Amino acid sequence: MNNPLARALRGAGINTVDVAARLGVDPKTVQRWMSGRMPYPRHRDALVRLTGWSQHDLWPDLPRPTQPEASGDEVRIVYPHRSTVPTDAWSRLFADAKAEIDILAYSALFLAEDITVSTLLRDKAVDGVRVRIALGMPDGVHVNDRGGEERIGDGMSARIRTALIGFHPIAEAGGELRLHDTVLYNSIYRADDELLINTHIYGRPASHAPVLHLRRWAADGMAATYLDSFERVWDSADKISR
């Protein structure tokens, strides 16, 4: 099954019987959900908690709010680790950008190797969206330290060099590439007011760490703090000639 709910449950390692037992429903009901039937709201909430996916990732046809919630909460969803973020969430994030796309990471190789995302970023740059990508300096001190922490040695530097090749067409299309030598506590992926923040955990690859999906509501909120961090690293990073 290619239904988002089926993919989410498979990714979380939860089978139909497990879901039925936890939610107190018949396994046939779960099978119908996985085939496309919409669950009741209380069951949707429970499935969000079980999978770590947002309601709109699980059921894309749900209506989306046009105004911020009264609470002004900037946290849309927390994914337990990056591999649970729906594959198409990255392309949908960048596809909605009208003015700015920012990427701050050590390598972001998973995006550079994603032909859908890399082509989208290139097309956005051609269309006049400001695309800025800051990757770790392959021979930098902190990249070397990160490689040691993850026990991959020079593997981190190799990932960055490979990612630079993948991102090169974006630079040719008008995007900006820079290299930084800073300690990253998070990787930042931004499209206008939407951000995916991949936290970093000592000794673990970023793909194993949680991801926060934020929407900026306020000039001094959580999202603004991450955006300020991006600007500080960007200003200190070295430009790469096209």
Score class of each variant (00 low, 15 high):
18 D>R: 02
136 G>A: 09
64 R>G: 01
103 I>M: 07
15 N>M: 03
174 G>L: 04
51 T>P: 07
32 R>P: 09
72 G>F: 05
170 I>S: 03
217 W>R: 15
9 L>V: 02
165 I>V: 13
112 A>Y: 08
193 D>C: 12
130 R>C: 05
170 I>R: 05
54 S>H: 10
81 H>I: 08
224 A>D: 07
107 S>D: 13
169 P>C: 10
15 N>I: 05
188 I>E: 04
13 G>N: 01
61 D>F: 06
23 L>E: 00
17 V>G: 03
62 L>D: 10
177 L>D: 01
86 P>K: 04
75 V>D: 06
46 A>I: 12
141 V>W: 10
43 H>S: 13
223 A>I: 04
229 S>M: 09
152 I>L: 06
195 L>R: 03
39 P>A: 02
111 L>Y: 11
118 S>R: 15
202 Y>V: 10
65 P>A: 06
168 H>T: 10
119 T>R: 15
17 V>K: 04
48 V>Y: 13
37 R>G: 05
41 P>S: 11
219 A>E: 15
182 T>K: 13
103 I>R: 04
206 A>I: 04
192 D>W: 05
52 G>A: 09
149 E>P: 02
134 A>S: 09
165 I>C: 07
42 R>N: 11
3 N>S: 11
132 R>I: 00
129 V>G: 01
110 F>K: 12
33 W>I: 07
23 L>D: 02
110 F>Y: 13
235 D>P: 12
211 V>N: 05
145 D>N: 10
88 D>V: 08
103 I>G: 02
221 G>R: 09
98 K>D: 14
241 S>V: 10
183 V>I: 14
238 D>R: 15
198 N>Q: 15
236 S>P: 10
63 P>F: 01
32 R>W: 10
62 L>A: 09
161 R>C: 03
202 Y>H: 12
199 T>A: 15
229 S>F: 07
137 M>Q: 13
112 A>V: 10
87 T>C: 06
126 V>P: 00
204 R>Q: 15
221 G>F: 08
149 E>Q: 14
144 N>K: 11
43 H>L: 12
166 G>N: 08
36 G>S: 04
4 P>V: 01
27 P>E: 08
188 I>Q: 03
53 W>C: 06
210 P>I: 08
180 H>Q: 11
183 V>D: 11
37 R>N: 10
158 A>T: 10
4 P>K: 01
108 A>P: 11
141 V>Q: 12
